[in-house]
Design a protein around this nucleic acid. Structure first.
Lengths: 236, 236
DNA sequence: TGAATAGTGTCTCTCAGACACTATTAG
DNA sequence: CTAATAGTGTCTGAGAGACACTATTCA
């Protein structure tokens, strides 16, 4: 913030500031987001992202991380969290002026969310279904932005491993790309690209025990965060 | 924003919301940002980005566009404006809790900013010098993020033309890339890539009248906004 | 004419995609 | 053995970079 000389810190229009969380995961080969169903107007019975007010002395990311831990009931250390965008149209909440800072979280498949104080339910919903249905506030726009960001980030970062368990096969990693991008990738070429990307994955001592077929090498995430060169997403 | 059932719209911690503008342009082959010098504490005499409070009924982008028009004194239609990030650390302003939504603007070389009501001065400053000096609040972080965003966007969008006048030569466009990326590009290869990118630039009927050397074809921006395939930034 | 800048041709290297092929498991 | 999945080899075409070359202007 930078201010004219006439600035008076006592006279400012008060806003409510909230965080909204777009928490993405992959369940049964579908990209899903964690949603809560609203039980009060406005948008009663609509699905909405978890979120809430930012407290007076609380940082934005700290607020997001707090909500994340509450809703998922999981240690948030392993979950990637980044700021997405800020949404502040004057009429986005009919009750009052609210500016919402949206965060994007990428997580491995998590247990079904626990009922927190029994006051609301959270559930995983496939994003393609969410984009067809009505969501509260401007949350459909936020969801589109979040999915788009996630798709893009898979191209030039190693964040795909966030959707995987601690150890994973290359087939699992490929499934992440295929699910998020909605396309099919050539397994041999994918394998080469991943292994050629320095620090993307590192092999472990173990192999996966499959139902059938040859067991696959298990890997864990490497140190690298950027992919150079980036992965190319096929046009679709 | 999504809220628990116990939500009460009357009880929320009030925040001030501001917009900050990172306005980038190229002057004399240097990437520059428009800055104002603070005349009151805190950070008195430090440089800061133009910005100010968002009014109660005003959208965030509308607020940013308003400030942009005021500070540059130029029709903002031709200036690219996009949301950058939101900065809301509890202690970022010592006076009060402020959440600032930063916007990034890319503009062609503009006239020296006019003095607006004589209450403050705006000036263009080379970003490399700004990054060496002390800036107000967390504005150095914001500047780094803005420059980084601009660099990245030149790779996969046609936004480089925003730094050019209405008609420009390919050499001017190449200068934009070289200045923003801080590298040298091979002129023949650059030319081929730009012309191969469908809708990046379209030739006009005119040629530039150079001081010396062969006149160059003039182009204007095309319809495309994305570059497929992206331009590759040399490692540096 | 020569200096300067615009623009073309062409070679090479790297990488992405296609796809045939081999390897290792379960039954 | 077959089915199924993991993993390798190899060809081809597109694009990036290097750089020699031609074209058009001014003085």
């Amino acid at each position: 913030m930078s201010l004219e000389d006439s600035y008076d810190p006592k006279q400012f229009p008060p806003f409510a500031v909230t965080v909204d969380l777009v928490i993405l995961t992959i369940r049964q080969a579908r990209l899903c987001a964690l949603m809560v169903r609203r039980t009060a107007p406005p948008f009663r019975d609509c699905l909405a992202f978890p979120g809430g007010f930012v407290a007076q002395g609380e940082g934005l990311e700290a607020a997001a991380r707090g909500k994340l831990a509450t809703k998922t009931g999981v240690s948030t250390a392993a979950i990637h969290l980044e700021q997405l965008q800020t949404y502040g149209a004057p009429d986005r909440d009919p009750r009052m002026r609210v500016v919402s800072v949206a965060y994007l979280a990428l997580a491995a498949d998590l247990p079904e969310p626990t009922v927190e104080g029994d006051s609301f339910r959270a559930q995983w919903c496939p994003v393609d279904e969410l984009l067809e249905s009505e969501l509260a506030f401007d949350h459909k726009t936020i969801l589109r932005d979040g999915v788009s960001r996630a798709r893009g980030k898979l191209e030039y970062t190693t964040l795909a491993t966030c959707f995987c368990p601690a150890e994973f096969t290359l087939a699992q990693l490929r499934d992440v790309y295929e699910t998020v991008w909605g396309c099919l990738l050539d397994a041999p070429n994918f394998r080469r690209k991943v292994l050629a990307a320095d620090g993307f994955v590192v092999p472990t001592a173990r192999s996966a025990a499959p139902d059938k077929g040859r067991p696959a090498q298990l890997y864990r995430p490497g140190e690298a965060s950027a992919l150079q060169p980036p992965f190319k997403r096929p046009p679709s």
